[in-house]
Design a protein around this nucleic acid. Structure first.
Length: 259
DNA sequence: ATGACAATCAGAGATTGA
């Protein structure tokens, strides 16, 4: 089972780039972030004609997450539990029925800038709720993963210029500590199972020639439960997508599970 | 550097992103 996460920065603007990558990469499941679309305006039929079931959790203008799947989906849940007043569409989960059943959670964690301020408070509160959901997944002993745009640079080697990020919400000690608390429950950062060196990024800013200078950061992550990590065959970042026509500022990250 | 760049909604320029 090949599962990908991809912050597309707007489905309307990215439909061609996303389609090209889908045809080339042939993932079974794709977790999308920043669809920037309400459910009614998502080009559902376009992806259905490519063989994907489409489940969206959209919002006008900003945020919005979705799941595309060639395999059957069950028990779809929209929204991260823990705050009925949170109207931002940043979480969707479902069970993918392959050779094995895999619970997949797609997430778009708040950016949090500027710091300090209400946006950073919201980020930390959201991460508290993520912690609760993560505890539930560990206790269930499910084959499960949480993947998406975490807006967290876990370690210095995950940034080309780490000193540029010391006061950023993505890399502040308090942000990293909250992320580490999730890892400490027993999750594995799948990318770091097979890649130990610096220089692997999933985001390059549109500004100041960041892509041309390879001034990137790794903020799109797959966190796996132990039962899921046991099934990991491969994981890659398709960084070449950033050099394509009209690219998102993020690129797809995908993994292959024995499931 | 009150920047750059891009998407959205709207129909200009503010807001958001990271």
């Amino acid at each position: 089972m090949k599962i990908a996460t991809f912050n597309i920065n707007g489905i309307k603007a990215r439909i061609q780039s996303l389609t090209n990558w889908l045809k080339q990469a042939q993932p079974d499941v794709v977790l999308l972030q920043e669809i920037k679309s309400i459910d009614e305006n998502f080009p559902r039929e376009w992806f259905e004609s490519m063989g994907y079931q489409v489940e969206t959790h959209g919002q006008k203008s900003f945020n919005g997450v979705a799941i595309l799947s060639k395999l059957p989906l069950e028990d779809i849940v929209r929204g991260l539990p823990g705050d009925i007043n949170d109207l931002q569409a940043r979480w969707i989960e479902a069970t993918v029925i392959g050779k094995k059943a895999v619970r997949v959670c797609g997430l778009y964690l708040p950016n949090g800038n500027p710091v300090p301020g209400p946006k950073y408070d919201y980020k930390l509160q959201w991460m508290q709720r993520l912690q609760s959901r993560a505890e539930g997944l560990i206790k269930s002993e499910e084959i499960a993963l949480m993947a998406g745009d975490y807006n967290i640079i876990p370690q210095r080697e995950d940034a080309a210029n780490p000193d540029d990020w010391t006061t950023d919400a993505a890399h502040l000690p308090q942000s990293r500590a909250s992320y580490q608390k999730v890892i400490n429950l027993g999750f594995t950062d799948a990318f770091r199972i097979k890649n130990f060196d610096a220089g692997h990024y999933s985001f390059w800013d549109y500004q100041a020639g960041s892509w041309q200078r390879d001034n990137g950061i790794r903020i799109d992550h797959f966190l796996l439960t132990p039962q899921c990590a046991d099934l990991l065959n491969d994981i890659e970042i398709d960084s070449f997508v950033r050099g394509g026509e009209k690219p998102s500022d993020h690129v797809p990250v995908w993994l292959e599970l024995e499931a």
